[in-house]
Design a protein around this nucleic acid. Structure first.
Lengths: 338, 338
DNA sequence: TTCAAAACTGTTATCGGTAACATATTATCA
DNA sequence: TGATAATATGTTACCGATAACAGTTTTGAA
């Protein structure tokens, strides 16, 4: 590895002078600068950023935790985040937490030891509070994305869950549905909680049919829908829902699959609405009627907030950014029969 | 930031002893170890890995360059790569090169200055040879993925292009097509080159209709298909192809869109086959008939090779891994009319 | 002309770790 | 029982950069 000393020797100056040239300090004579640049080029010298960081305390490295890059929602968050980071001269280390709090903890300790300047962070669930505290103890600025942590006041970028559920419900009601079931992920994740809350509110305020057996919370990794679906389908016709709101795209795929298995077709027998269709295809109508969350924008904005925070351009008060979503009508919804 | 010296002071030992405890050296008495561990916990000490790297010369950090994480093919490569890296205790800094050689160069210099242990690298095109040389000069192990660089002998993981084209052509011929056009990306990218070569071979060996005006190379960022399509559709019926092989999923989407604009429908008027349908949806038949490349496996294997190389577990001779692909029949193909 | 300020370059110490060597104590065996 | 090895811990130097300070030369205003 070529060091600054080798460059210095070749250019017949001190290491400090080379450092000054690299960092564009004033007070370097044009001749010296030229000599040094020549030596740098000849040796193809690339400074060791880790040695620099030891003194400067910054690394221009940012962390990104998402649950799974393979989920198109997070893919676009990652892309938005990387774009902004890149624009500002930062690089991104990423990790898939897979809804696993231990994996999250272990990654966070690793990136702290790397000296990352900040972290953009989709927390696993409310248990992530301990990891957030670790970050704070080590004075790593971070911004939450997509999910809030209960009891933690921190900068946050999310989509508008209230509005999203209202839009979905409005659309279903407009189609003539009044019996609407609700399948969500685990409620220790904030967006699930908010969506469920919005659903319950909507049902109450609009005097829709209410039934506790129509509401089901699954896990995110082991999604056990079979029993719930069987119970639902066994209900006598007047008590059977004609539509289901699903809070997660992966769950909705499995749900449709199970419904089909039981001989129920979507949307003929039952309508399904969800979030962030994973099959969005530019050319044809989306299969699912969904709420599209502005994933790219969320990632981009999240990084922007984070970098502002790091570089001190930001007022110190915490901010919560709630971005608007968009209803996209697909082929998983129709008016109820009869 | 808590340093090893503060831990040492609190535990009443030297910094070296703390270091020994952290790194599980032998010759530490149980009492000392316990004292030190207690101090580490009380201070929530996380070692500074950059300071460590300054001496040890390794960082447990790996680079990943893909053209665009948003392309599901690369998403899965990234996921496979991150999984393997994580299993082996490494972390991944990634970058979207966007088919832009300057962005690639700049990223590579950055990660070199970070002291990455190695790089998994989908090169932009043959011009990437200079970046590969930079990596070699700085003794950074790397493995190429998805694309070869002409004139560079280096470890490589790709999908079987020859076989893929043969499968697509076989399928079209079996449907009754004999007039098959070919649209590819730029031929300074190895997989495009190989696919084109395989297509030309197939046409020749099977005595299919040949026509230079049926072959078109586009850019990857600015895909200009309009003129080509117009020419193609203006051909008198006997000279008009009944199917098109497209080497890139994004191009195929645009192609279908343009064909539709001109009043031609797929597959009724013309069949389209391609690679890696971006709309693959678990529940229903894929829209496009495609060759599915084993993206996850490619990323995983690529990382495995890279890490073996870094850790010296690997024989020093270069290896080229060509993974098998899978034909997936979708709705973009049918037998030709009349 | 003269001397302080500005411009230019070098020396030393330090960032947070660890390798290499040194020292002190304990264990082991001929 | 004395010599040697093994165990346990500390001291010093160094990894590659840069901040802080210190010179030396040049510049410019009085």
């Amino acid at each position: 590895m070529t060091t600054i000393y080798e460059v210095a020797k070749r250019a017949n100056v001190s290491a400090m002078t080379v450092s000054r040239v690299i960092n564009n300090h004033k007070s370097i004579s044009p001749e010296t600068r030229e000599k040094v640049i020549k030596a740098i080029k000849e040796l193809d010298y690339i400074p060791n950023n880790n040695a620099r960081s030891l003194i400067s305390k910054d690394t221009k490295l940012l962390g990104l935790i998402i649950t799974d890059i393979t989920n198109p929602f997070f893919t676009n968050i990652a892309r938005g985040a990387e774009d902004k980071a890149n624009e500002e001269g930062y690089q991104v280390v990423f990790s898939n937490s897979d809804e696993n709090i231990e994996k999250e903890s272990s990654y966070i300790r690793s990136v702290i030891s790397r000296g990352i300047d900040g972290l953009l962070f989709a927390p696993t669930n409310n248990d992530s509070i301990n990891n957030a505290k670790t970050l704070r103890k080590h004075e790593i600025p971070f911004v939450l994305i997509d999910r809030e942590i209960e009891g933690l006041d921190e900068d946050l970028v999310i989509a508008d869950n209230q509005q999203s559920i209202n839009d979905l419900m409005d659309y279903l009601v407009q189609l003539g549905h009044t019996k609407i079931a609700f399948v969500s992920g685990p409620t220790n994740i904030s967006n699930t909680r908010e969506r469920k809350h919005a659903y319950l509110n909507y049902v109450k305020e609009n005097n829709l049919h209410q039934d506790p057996s129509w509401i089901y919370d699954t896990g995110l990794i082991d999604i056990k829908l079979d029993e719930f679906v069987q119970k639902l389908l066994a209900l006598p016709s007047p008590n059977k829902p004609t539509a289901i709101v699903v809070t997660n795209n992966f769950i909705s795929i499995q749900l449709i699959s199970i419904l089909n298995k039981h001989g129920f077709s979507v949307p003929d027998d039952i309508s399904i609405v969800s979030f962030d269709d994973p099959s969005s295809f530019p050319l044809h109508k989306s299969l699912l009627t969904i709420i599209k969350q502005p994933a790219y924008k969320m990632g981009y904005l999240g990084m922007e907030l984070l970098i502002n925070k790091i570089e001190g351009k930001e007022a110190r008060d915490k901010k919560k950014f709630v971005l608007p979503t968009e209803l996209k009508i697909g082929e998983s919804t129709s008016s109820p029969k009869e």
